[in-house]
Computed example of a mutant assay.
Amino acid sequence: MANVGIDPVDRRILRALQEDGRMTVQALAEKVGLSPSPCLRRVRQLERAGVISGYSANIEQKAVGLPVSVFISIKLERQRADNLDTFGAAISRWPEVMECYLMTGKFDFLLRVVCADLEAYEHFLRDRLTQLEGVASIESSFSLGAVKFSRVLPL
């Protein structure tokens, strides 16, 4: 999505909502220097424009029994549009896949998968990834820990 004419006030709103998406309109308005009505109008405009795509809670994956993060590089046998789309559609249905990127370079896709343990990952690998048609190679790298993880864009 192209920049939709975000001005400095919109940027302050976006920064504040990234820090705390649950703040009231009143608190947000005070933080960005507006009265509540114009502030809410701007938030709704940012939502309609697709700049704000949703709101969610950040959940600590270890606290919910999913301490293992695996980065998986996938190479397909063929890189035609229909092969890429078929792969993307399949992995989009799997809740373990937190992120998937179409890549340039040696591999076609990079996935971040979360799971409870190595046994759960083995099941994911055997029962899902290796069952997909057109996958030429799978390379897994296990995260030892996050050095930095952020969903906050540098606005």
Rank of each mutant, 00 (worst) to 15 (best):
R112L: 03
G134N: 04
Q26N: 15
S141E: 08
P8L: 01
P95D: 06
P36A: 04
S53I: 15
Q131M: 08
S143Y: 06
V147F: 12
V25H: 06
P8R: 06
R15A: 13
Y55V: 15
L111T: 04
R44G: 11
L34T: 01
F124T: 03
G105R: 02
F109R: 05
L40M: 14
R44H: 09
I59M: 06
A81E: 08
M1R: 12
N83T: 11
C100D: 07
V32A: 04
H123V: 12
D127H: 07
L132D: 01
G50I: 09
K62Y: 01
A63K: 08
A120K: 03
G105M: 00
L144M: 14
G105W: 00
R48Y: 08
R128W: 01
G145N: 14
K148I: 07
S137Y: 01
Q79P: 14
V135K: 03
S53W: 03
D108V: 04
A116V: 04
V70F: 01
Y55D: 12
R44T: 14
E122V: 12
M1T: 12
E96D: 09
R11M: 14
L28F: 03
Y121V: 05
R112A: 06
E119C: 10
T104L: 11
A90K: 11
S56E: 10
E96Q: 15
S37P: 13
Q61A: 15
I91P: 05
D7W: 08
G134R: 07
G5N: 00
I91L: 05
L111Y: 03
D82F: 09
S143V: 12
G21L: 03
R112F: 00
M98Q: 15
D82L: 10
R48W: 09
L125V: 08
P67M: 00
D10V: 09
L132Q: 06
L14P: 00
D10Y: 10
E77Q: 15
L28R: 00
V135F: 04
F149M: 15
V114K: 02
Y55S: 13
A81N: 12
E122C: 12
T86I: 07
R15Y: 13
Y121N: 06
G145Q: 12
V32K: 01
L155C: 07
R11A: 08
L118Y: 07
